[in-house]
Design a protein around this nucleic acid. Sequence first.
DNA 1: CACAACGACTTGAGGGCTCAACTATTCCCG
DNA 2: CGGGAATAGTTGAGCCCTCAAGTCGTTGTG
Lengths: 176, 176
Amino acid sequence: MPVPDEGTRWLTEREQRTWRSFLTANRLLFDQVERQLQQGAGLPHAYFEILVRLSEAPDRAMRMSELASTSLSSRSRLSHAVARMEETGWVRRRPCESDRRGQIAELTAEGLAQLEAAVPSHVEEVRSLLFDALTETQREALLEISDAIVDHITRGDPPWPVAPDTPGPGPSRRPA
Amino acid sequence: MPVPDEGTRWLTEREQRTWRSFLTANRLLFDQVERQLQQGAGLPHAYFEILVRLSEAPDRAMRMSELASTSLSSRSRLSHAVARMEETGWVRRRPCESDRRGQIAELTAEGLAQLEAAVPSHVEEVRSLLFDALTETQREALLEISDAIVDHITRGDPPWPVAPDTPGPGPSRRPA
DNA sequence: CACAACGACTTGAGGGCTCAACTATTCCCG
DNA sequence: CGGGAATAGTTGAGCCCTCAAGTCGTTGTG
């Protein structure tokens, strides 16, 4: 690969291979999970995760910002997502009484039903794409590795609390 | 595949934890990589990968469909991406002489320069987000795990060749 | 208390991606 | 060879997401 620099800590041959294989595995895995969920349940994986978090909250309701944090969404993304899912009737929004700036998102019965219907085939997909590919030793290693990455990236930082619009994932914008 | 229920092979507690940690690590990692590339170089990671593959090809040129395969893009995605990067002058397209249906994408000098400028900080990002988080043992394990997933998912399938529009990743479409 | 700083969301423009057509070639086979 | 089937690539609509800016409510300080 290109090599102008000098001070850069380049990757070793083996690290390169690891990174590329990791990238490939991820794309293959998540693209398939995404497709399966979209075709089977008609929702993107990010929406699915939001519904899962909501379903696990007391009263199946949560403040928007807390929901954003636990579902690893930016505030903006969550706003758009909840707006959409409100249209389809899976989620309802109501004002927060203790803080009038706030909104509380609540999973509707319909949303819960939708979620429960989507879960089995999703689980099957995850098992067959990921866990079936690994030995028990590798599964354990994967947990440790994942935890290590999470700890490393969130080192010290609000393990989950959220900054301005910060928590949000990635970019956009056109090339030039 | 989908199973009403009962027959579902649920995840164990530990598998659940593994899957969620894996998801979290992936989001944190890729969102950050994406953002860094977008802000630093003004291109999305998918575009970056396309440029990398092109830069490694003989004459820095490749057939569209081959490029789609090696960069894990759907044909459609690649078409859009190349069209955009052609506008910005990083890539050029010319007809393929041996097969008049075909097109050959070629990395321009400008595109190569752009890519080389983007690489160092990208490498640094990958190192600091991923490899710095892991022990040597974990790095080795990650390579094995990734390879295992790739092999499993592509078992038998065209290891890379490409079906209709198939190779493409995921879905879209609205909830209901 | 007034007012600035901050926090919680929302909104809209812009861009990337998928899916589903659609065009143009090339292949294959009777 | 003639024509259907497969292949290469493109295009457009629709959706999700990001960024940046905007609206309100809350807090803290002189």
